[in-house]
């Protein structure tokens, strides 16, 4: 078996190939203008980290990528498809875009294993044996193999989040979106989740990560976006941006969080 199959990740494409492109994204919630014209390109193997003050539109932007939130204006391209086109098969597109949420959002009435196999069987139409094997592999990868039979309510926050990551990975997505996945965790549980994400980045997964973990942003991010008041305030190499922020807003923000 080829190694990409074994690890459950799609064979990483050549670095530099555009995977996702956001063009002039605007989002209004009623009268509230949350995203005010954002352009962004995610290349293969990019780990794009999005930081910024709360209310700045980070999560909304991330959710626009998988169209959980529909941009009011602008286009989202996945590979060479315009997925904001009304005719796009979003269900199919979303199988390639893994998403992990702040609140884990595991299905509470299903075991950890069933959480992972559900979409494999119902969406990817795998046989239950295939789905089971793939799910067990993924659970083992995030160190949750021994808890496959547990219900979410019996797991700690960190364990639930790792199952949620396994659930998304089992679909073998081309890109993973992380929406403040450690924000709801007790401090001592943050590490186990970050560890999984760091390993994932190391394996070449394309990732977009909204986070408050500045250490993670600096060490793992290949690119960083400072989103402030719905606009990209600054963009560049994470280490660069941490060392010498160009704008006052970023400097102020970093002073507060570091």
């Amino acid at each position: 078996m080829e190694s990409a199959q074994a690890t459950g990740i799609n064979a990483p494409g050549r670095a530099g190939e555009p995977l996702i492109r956001l063009e002039g994204i605007h989002k209004w919630f009623g009268n509230l203008h949350v995203i005010k014209g954002v352009d962004l390109t995610l290349q293969q193997r990019d780990v794009v980290v999005v930081i910024g003050p709360s209310g700045g539109g980070k999560s909304t932007l991330l959710r626009c990528v998988s169209l959980l939130e529909e941009p009011t204006l602008g286009r989202v391209w996945f590979e060479d498809r315009d997925i904001t086109d009304i005719r796009a098969d979003l269900n199919e597109v979303r199988t390639h875009i893994g998403m992990v949420f702040q609140a884990y959002n595991l299905f509470p009435h299903m075991t950890a294993l069933r959480n992972v196999t559900l979409a494999l069987e119902r969406v990817l139409k795998l046989s239950s044996d295939e789905a089971h094997d793939r799910a067990m592999d993924q659970l083992a990868r995030v160190g949750m193999g021994h808890k496959a039979a547990a219900f979410p309510g019996q797991l700690s926050g960190g364990q639930q989040q790792r199952v949620a990551i396994a659930r998304a990975l089992a679909m073998r997505p081309k890109v993973m979106l992380f929406d403040e996945v450690t924000s709801a965790l007790d401090p001592e549980l943050v590490g186990e989740v970050l560890e999984v994400m760091i390993r994932l980045a190391g394996e070449g997964m394309t990732m977009m990560v909204v986070t408050h973990e500045m250490g993670f942003a600096r060490e793992v991010g290949t690119r960083m976006l400072f989103l402030d008041d719905g606009r990209v305030g600054e963009e560049g190499e994470p280490k660069d941006m941490f060392r010498n922020p160009k704008s006052d807003r970023l400097r102020q923000f970093l002073d507060k969080v570091l």
């Binding site: 269900n91 199919e92 979303r94 199988t95 998403m99 959002n105 595991l106 559900l118 979409a119 969406v123």
Partner: peptide, 20 residues
């Protein structure tokens, strides 16, 4: 979030309703 999690894995609205 339950609906969003289901949809984000490519389930249709009706599938999400039915299973989640």
């Amino acid at each position: 979030g339950q609906m969003e999690a289901a949809r984000s894995m490519g389930m249709s609205y009706l599938q999400a309703m039915r299973y989640a």
